[in-house]
Amino acid sequence: MIYFDRVSKIYADNSVALEDVSFSVEPGEFISVVGQSGAGKTTLVKMLLAEERPTSGSVFFESINVHEVPLKNINTLRRKIGTVFQDFRLLPNKTAYENIAFAMEASGKSEEEIRSDVPHVLELVDLREKINNFPDELSGGEQQRVAIARAIVNQPDVIVADEPTGNLDPTNTYEVVQILKKINDLGTTIVLTTHNKGVIDSLKRRVITMERGKVIRDDKEGKYIL
């Protein structure tokens, strides 16, 4: 489903963000990419979302080289990938309902579908009662759950969660990880980047360990080892 083929990213100041990274992700997998800050985890995510171009190598999503997709068509690709960020990135002037509805509207869903799916998905993340709240009226954990609801509402093939628990307390971290596990159990592929040892050790899933832009370990049922 996802294939990184010898991907390197060297910035203009000669700093190396990724070096010869190769790995693949199968449909339905839950993989965690771990590493300390600056290891290249976020760059990896940006490559997959075509936010950045590799200096060399290719990134394939469902056999499509994501960096060969024209800019005007990139949104079609991104609709297949749900994204969750450390800083939530909700639209500040939209309510929880509207944030999720926006993702559906952008992918051309009908009003009926939006009216039926948005409350349902908010119920899945246990935020039904906060449907009309704006992001600044929600706690960090609640904002992240809205972000997850937005990521899953279009039933994407894969969810990419970049440090989703980075700004959360242990309770909210646990809840977010449980939601991601539940989504994975329903068949969606999950790519999670984190440096939270507790999260990785509790998951007992595949772990790719990165250090200074390189993949140094790829363990099927890994632990956080650094």
């Binding site: 949104n75 994204t83 909700l90 639209l91 002037n93 926006f102 993702a103 952008a106």
Partner: peptide, 16 residues
């Protein structure tokens, strides 16, 4: 600008 970037990342087209 950050909102626009988020909109792009959740798959919204340029026109929308």
């Amino acid at each position: 600008r950050e909102e626009i970037q988020v909109m792009r990342l959740v798959g919204a087209g340029a026109f929308y």
